[in-house]
Nucleic acid binder design. Sequence first.
DNA 1: CGTTTGCTTGAATTCTGTCAAAGCAGGTGG
DNA 2: CCACCTGCTTTGACAGAATTCAAGCAAACG
Lengths: 176, 176
Amino acid sequence: MDFSSFKTKRVEKGTILLYPGAISKAAFKVQKGCLKSYIIDDSGKEHILQFAPEDWFISDMESYTRKTPGKIYISAVEDSEIVLIDTAVFEYTVQLDMESQKVWSEKYRNSLIANQNRLISLLSYNAEQKYLQFMETYPGLAQRLPLKLIASYLGMTPEHLSFTRKQLAKKQSDVS
Amino acid sequence: MDFSSFKTKRVEKGTILLYPGAISKAAFKVQKGCLKSYIIDDSGKEHILQFAPEDWFISDMESYTRKTPGKIYISAVEDSEIVLIDTAVFEYTVQLDMESQKVWSEKYRNSLIANQNRLISLLSYNAEQKYLQFMETYPGLAQRLPLKLIASYLGMTPEHLSFTRKQLAKKQSDVS
DNA sequence: CGTTTGCTTGAATTCTGTCAAAGCAGGTGG
DNA sequence: CCACCTGCTTTGACAGAATTCAAGCAAACG
């Protein structure tokens, strides 16, 4: 898709781009840096639903497509440069341009697949397998993000992720 | 939505309506009985993604909307009566009828929300909390389905779900 | 420097899975 | 109608996985 018709924006690490309750007027494509989407549960714990490093899209699909108040936060975990895919502009563009529609469908499908894979991994994997799948899904991201964020994404404590990493390192040195 | 233009079908318990690899030509609305969607992982274990009792929709969204080979099974866990929402007929109907579109959007949104809730519960809940949320999501279904299916949906062993139920029963008798 | 923040470690505890045995149906054939 | 399967559920002992809590370490920052 040609993104030149959309606005580019720079945001600092920690900037919150979307709050629960707000109606999402834009989706985000990350050019540089990294965003996360997450919710805060009743006991105050943060649960990360998705990361979006370079070339990923991130949005509250529900709010974005249905124009209803959303439930999730989106914020920057690094200083980032992002493209705002404005709802109105987006809908207009897609009408004109079949190619845009294809590319968008592709992105949308990918997010569906990612979601399904995530469900399956949470249903059936242990800590080690979850971490390995995280590294496949987000190559290189493990080196950039603080461990506690990854732990939140994987649904385990930072301590346990630290332990799991050590186990993995031991295994790999045994092999070699 | 007016479902009279779609075909109704009766299926026996155990009937498989959709296989992985197939291109889904229909979504299903359950009038009576119950369906499930699931995948079989590399080690041969079944993981249930969703149940669809009365008035629920179920489909392989990815395959249905993108007309690509799917990844999931859909089958009947009880003798069921279902409405086939044929892709072509559906698209035609929605074009004509704004009211249809609204109802469909509602169903679609519900499934997004359900999916998000499911992610969150797998990320943050223990066995007991997961089971309680299951009962909220599917009222009465716990009485109809074999325990092993519910365990598969919740991502735990049947033995542990049995144990969890006993714990819950004890707690509730302590209160009264 | 001292403080802060995040990561690692270890011990104790809780949670969940594995395995084996026994109870409890519903269904079938005699 | 009964006896026998067969599959599902329950139970308990045990092992392994994950969390909690507390302490120590190291890099980053003022």
